[in-house]
Design a protein around this nucleic acid. Structure first.
Lengths: 249, 249
DNA sequence: ATTAAATCTGCGTGTTTCTGCAAGTTTTCC
DNA sequence: GGAAAACTTGCAGAAACACGCAGATTTAAT
């Protein structure tokens, strides 16, 4: 049995039973435990399972602990959220994506704001839900565990029936030449549809992500109406975007 | 059983029951109390629970910062949740409603369960989301603040495209004569559609709500396949339902 | 096809981890 | 205050592990 085959078998067993023992695998495949251990080590290094003393476990077993999620660059994101919240007026119809910046925006909204929010991001929805005067429209579909946002044909289809006053997105990479880019195919599809459905596009990002590029193209900078970062709007880093006609806040 | 597996089990028990006893764990897992104590020590050191004389407590139990929202009749609902969780097999397609009992069910699911859950209840979805092997389908529509569940024409329409293996509902009033009744028009509409779309109907309720009636009719007892309460299935209160052909658990 | 390089695998060595037991101490509860 | 339960500490056997090495196998280039 080839190494590759063996590892595929191990992975299959882990996904099936959520746990494997080095000793049993050694018997089943008829190789030494050392070899099994080396395989488990490799699979663990590539993040496909979790190696433990005596064997390995599927990821689901160890993820039991819900880590009090640390938000990266929280102070910056709070500044961004405050600026974005100021844009939202009573009666508006707002489409938002997911991500920690959007969640901060949801938290930053004034308690008496009277607006409608459309979103498929569960963490964001949970926050909107706490504002009694906000109307929430949930975009339903398959839920992505990694991004905690719904995606798929249903969402895209549903988006066609809205024309929100603005679409607010947290973005992962922005560059004058390549525009908005991202690294998750499904999320990119979703963002494109969201952008096209709304009257205006507001992008939120920490300055760190400006002038960076990710593999998948979302849209060009021309689509962006407003760009919000934690920096002063006159900061040199933002000059090119302001000159391109984007309202920088 | 591997050490990490054991610790995952202990954590699950702690999160479920808010407390565990070293002696009972020792019996359940069939290891010495010393080993349990060492496990509890480790979990305590990593801040995942609080070690006390005789066993351990859930962190949220003692943490004043995060007051666990009070759920009415929580012990009873946990019993119900455990019984309901036992019905769910790998590969099943489950439609669930909202309410605190359903949320408890979501918490009670074993971490390695491999099933698909469809729901419009945000609190339930948040729980499902934490189970890595569970696939979640979000029913999108307008969100009701009071019941934290989506409702409306979109949900009803979407429900037509599913035929779940079972529909699990928390119910507010049950009576042999009037069947399932409720007091919220929108929720009733939703429940009716959910009931009609699924192969089987499983109803969860604390015994207190049995033989009570609410203003709006949902469906007759004939539609109910399984009834789960915190009581012993042979309890006199449940007799009429068992005699009517309902599987009482 | 042949050969050299790279990789893979099994074994022996010594080390670490895990678990249960025993002996002595602390806590709890009557 | 005293008994029972829970705990701490130390220890020992078993299992799992890391590491180096040598032979086997695969890969790639001649």
């Amino acid at each position: 049995m080839l190494k590759r085959e063996r590892q595929a078998y191990i992975l299959h067993q882990v996904n099936l039973h959520n746990r494997v023992l080095s000793a049993s695998l050694s018997n089943e495949i008829a190789v030494s435990e050392d070899t099994i251990r080396r395989d488990l080590m490799e699979l663990s290094d590539t993040g496909q399972l979790v190696k433990v003393h005596g064997g390995a476990l599927s990821h689901s077993f160890t993820n039991v602990n819900r880590p009090a999620e640390k938000v990266y660059a929280l102070p910056e994101k709070r500044i961004i959220a405050a600026k974005a919240a100021a844009l939202i007026q009573n009666g508006m119809f707002i489409l938002t994506g997911g991500g920690t910046t959007i969640v901060e925006l949801a938290k930053a909204l004034t308690i008496d704001l009277n607006a409608t929010f459309i979103s498929g991001s569960i963490p964001a929805i949970v926050e909107y839900m706490h504002h009694t005067n906000i109307e929430v429209i949930v975009l339903g579909d398959k839920l992505s565990k990694t991004s905690q946002i719904t995606y798929g044909a249903d969402v895209m289809e549903k988006l066609k029936s809205f024309t929100p006053d603005m679409c607010i997105l947290g973005i992962n990479a922005l560059d004058m030449e390549h525009g908005i880019t991202d690294n998750d195919w499904d999320v990119v599809q979703l963002k494109q549809h969201m952008i096209n459905s709304a009257k205006k596009l507001v992008c939120l990002t920490i300055s760190e992500k400006i002038n960076t590029v990710q593999p998948i193209h979302v849209c060009s900078t021309k689509k962006i109406d407003t760009l919000i970062t934690e920096l002063d709007p006159n900061d040199a880093l933002l000059k090119p975007f302001a000159e391109a006609g984007i309202k920088v806040i």
